[in-house]
Each structure stands twice: as C-alpha cells, then as structure tokens.
Design a protein around this nucleic acid. Sequence first.
DNA 1: AAGATTTGACCAAC
DNA 2: GTTGGTCAAATCTT
Length: 309
Amino acid sequence: MEKIGSWDRKTVISVLTEGRELANELKKQLHPTTNSREACDILVENILSSYENALKLLDCMALLGKGDPSQVAVSNVFELPNSIEGSPKSEWSDQISKDQLHKCKKRKTLPRWSEQVRVCSGTGLEGQLDDGYNWRKYGQKDILGANHPRAYYRCTHRNTQGCLATKQVQRADDDPSVFEMMIATETDLKAENQELVTKEDHFPSFSFPTTPIESENVETQFFSEPSNIVGTNYSPQFLSPATSESYFSLSPCPVNDFGFGHSLQSSDSDFAEIISNPTPFTNFPFGDLDFSIDQAVFDSNFLDTTDFL
DNA sequence: AAGATTTGACCAAC
DNA sequence: GTTGGTCAAATCTT
C-alpha cells in the first residue's frame, strides 16, 4: 500500500508555477511582433490545464484534510458505468411514490453501484472523508460466507428531498481494518431504471467490461503525461459522458460539508467510526501522489471541479 | 421531542 | 428453502 507523502504542497506549487510560466510564454506570444495563433492556443490550453490541476489538488487535500493520510487506502471500482444523462434529480425522484419505494423491498439483482471503496480505519481520518451525503443506517445483515455483517445506509434526506442514494458497508474478511463500501447514487438508480427501458433498443449487443481496468493501465493512462495530470486530454472509451453526478455531483440531498456527519451510536458496530463520510476523491489520479489506485475507470467529468467547488 | 440506530420480520430473487 | 435488501417498531441519543 503506497502512502501519501509530502506531495501536496510541492505539487500544487509546481503546478501553479508551471501555469505561471506558461502564462508568461503566452504573453510573449501575444506580443505584436510574434503572431503564432497555434502556439497561443496550445499555451492557453496548457495554462488552463495547470490551473485546473492545482484547483483539484487543493480540493483533494481539503477532503483528505487532517489525520494521517497514510492510513487511507482506497480504490474505486466503477462497476457499472452506465449513468445516463437525464432529467434533473428532482424530476425523477419526485416520481417515486411510497408504493414504489415499497417495491424496493425486492432484491436488487442488477449491479447498481457507482463506487466500491476500500478504506482503512483507525486514525480518525475516516471522519474527514465525506462523499457529500448524510447517511442513515437502516439495516444490518449477516452475510453468508462473510465474517462480518453488512450495514445498510441510505441518504438522510430520502423522505424530505427524495434522495435515493444508498450505501453498503462491510468489514473486509481478509483485513478487518479495511472497510468495503459500495455506494449507489441517484444517478445509478436512475440509470438502472432507464437501462431497463432503453438498453435493448439502443445497445442490444453491447456491454461494459465487467472487470475493472488494471491499475497499471490506469496509471499508464493518467500518469504518463505529467502535464495532463487531470486528464484534460483524456477520452474515456467506455464511459458515458454524463456520469459525473455519480461521483461528486452533490444534488440537493448531499451535504458536502467535509466534516463529520452523524456518528453511529452502535456500541458494537465496527462501522461506527467510518461510515458517515466515506471518500469522494478516493482515486484522484495524480502522478506524483501516492494514492493507491487498485482499480478504476474514470469518467471524463470526474475531475470537473465546477461540480463541487 | 426529534432524529438516529437496532433488530426482527417481511419479501422477492435465486 | 436460503439469502440479501428493506421495512418498521422499539429503543437510544441528543
């Protein structure tokens, strides 16, 4: 497990410095005596990229915040990159009646999780991690073959704002200090519904890969070009361009306060320290950063800071 | 008192 | 029949 080192400050400075130098270069190019439009375009792109990188670094650091980052070991597995751009959340969530909610008792057989996250516990950092939702536990179940029970959480604002995000948390069998979380946001649920209607019509023979991209591949993709850390030139091959909400879009229900959510009162609950605020930026793809990216598939809007600034 | 958690029961998928 | 996801009453916390 790699650890987060002193990358943060140095990396931000480096990125900002790069942006400044590029801006200076652009200034030269804009001089009346020189007239290279193409060069200017490239410089502008690079400048924007540099500042975006810096901003995202700062966001990432703000979320990881205090505590000992070395204890964070996370990976996201976007197992179902099928989020589909559609109507605003309020439009569809409002359509869900109590009867429909009641039907949700039925077992979910389709994969609908946008994120699978592994988080180490034990340092208090967990409390700093926040996916923007306020979670409320609504059940716990012993799972066959698992050493630890699985806890079920849903958004606190389910009733008041129709937030349908849900989350399952279970202590890993192989490493009890690691929690495995699966998070399903409204987008996933929406996509699931829409998929039932449209996939046969539109994608009769196409399916997304069920196994995530190897970490080496991800790192190669994202880390090979330092100047494009954030992937401004990255074009995901398999993902819908409208999946950002699954990751960070904090529609009405999430709180996104980056602080502690409610704390679980369960005396015996292994999840008590960690559940309320899991990781939003768990696999931030910075080349110099020591995040461990076990498996990931990124959305093109994944790092669009405008979604959460 | 309001809101959150616990836990047994219910229900549908398998 | 078994299992996993959810409900809801009871209980607890703030």
